[in-house]
Design a binder for these strands. Sequence first.
DNA 1: CGTAGGACCTCCCGTGACGTGAGGTTCAAG
DNA 2: CTTGAACCTCACGTCACGGGAGGTCCTACG
Lengths: 235, 235
Amino acid sequence: MTRWSIGDLAKASGLTIRTLHHYDEIGLVVASERTASGHRRYTPDDVRRLYQVRSLRQLGLSLEEVRSALSRSDSLRPLFEAQLAALNAQARQVEALRSRLTALLDGHTTESLLSTLEMMSVYESYFTADQLDDLRSRAAAMGPEAVEALKASWLELVRQLRQHLADGTPADDPRVVELARQWDELGAQFTGGDPAVQAAAQKSWTENKASISTQIGWPADDGVVDYVTRARAAR
Amino acid sequence: MTRWSIGDLAKASGLTIRTLHHYDEIGLVVASERTASGHRRYTPDDVRRLYQVRSLRQLGLSLEEVRSALSRSDSLRPLFEAQLAALNAQARQVEALRSRLTALLDGHTTESLLSTLEMMSVYESYFTADQLDDLRSRAAAMGPEAVEALKASWLELVRQLRQHLADGTPADDPRVVELARQWDELGAQFTGGDPAVQAAAQKSWTENKASISTQIGWPADDGVVDYVTRARAAR
DNA sequence: CGTAGGACCTCCCGTGACGTGAGGTTCAAG
DNA sequence: CTTGAACCTCACGTCACGGGAGGTCCTACG
């Protein structure tokens, strides 16, 4: 029994028959012989090649990579090193996702999960990854109740600003200017005072007024941002 | 400008137009309005939904998972926990691959990489993951030159056995029985004397005689394994 | 007012690594 | 000789889009 049928080989190797068909189709592992009726007969060399393919696949290489690795079998080392680098990158990626998810699950009640995600998502268009890490670690350091308190102050601030806006108070009114100062101060607590982060936040607000307000549920549209900008200019 | 064109939304969200088309096609994020000529107009609610989708996608969920998460938005927590578990599994997977690759790259010269892989691959059909970990760590502990020495003894042993077989020496001849004892002793050094591992190795040899010999380059087919089995029985 | 060149539309094929039948032929055992 | 398991070849489905063809629409400029 020096020739293997496809079924036996599938059982021995743990692959499916369809997979062996596929490898045959693309010429990666071809059954060197066929019976008169067309059934595949795998020779020991075919089997050997199949096991090589399987082992390379188990290292995470694509079929094309496996093919070229087996064609010029001289230098597997650089290919493996590249693969290792890719795996390292993937590991970092997975780790980043993991920490984000655990942070989310640890720090939030169920209802706020989606809106928190949404905020993160919106911000990610405007901040760099490093800046976001910064923001997150600052929020983590403050603790959830401090973050909630800050949010409450924020809402109160916006409420007052909107009141003034509705009352027709001019932007350079000292009371409004003071509120704008508090606005920036609150912002600084979020941003850590980093000017680059503040600039990014500013950009996000001005470019994205309409969407950001509806997205985050902040009542900060209808001109409040403009109002603050004008008040800040009056300072 | 409370409606977004598809191009502007693509720029703002960092997704491609094709992706937005796709989300529209499958009904995940549909542009609620169209211009008279058929151009998509995204409302703030659409934008909001898009950002939710994007954030969930960034956690590694599939589009179907995102869809169901957004439909019954009550309990994201279990879904996230499942996702976290999947990520943990993936992290372990990547880590296993990484350690295998680093071990390979650290411990072997280029030429032997493929045959080593091949051996590993063949064995993996017969040993459990734990047993393989065992074998690997034992090989690592022995050091590469000891492994090579062992391999050399092995080849010498097989050479002698084959000689006896060719000479017609009966399997219960004391010299053959002694060689069989050495065979088992060498095997024990590989297997660490673990009976389960030995049984698995035994199974691999007897079931897979033809293939294993050609695959690993061991000249252990043509009846040598049977011969040893009979000699062992005579002990 | 005409035109150029973006921006947008739909339709449809391609990707990777197979899964999953459909419908027919061949093999091994009773 | 028959039956059921094993095998064969199409050929479409998967997932999340990429990319191009071929056509329409919008906007700014001369």
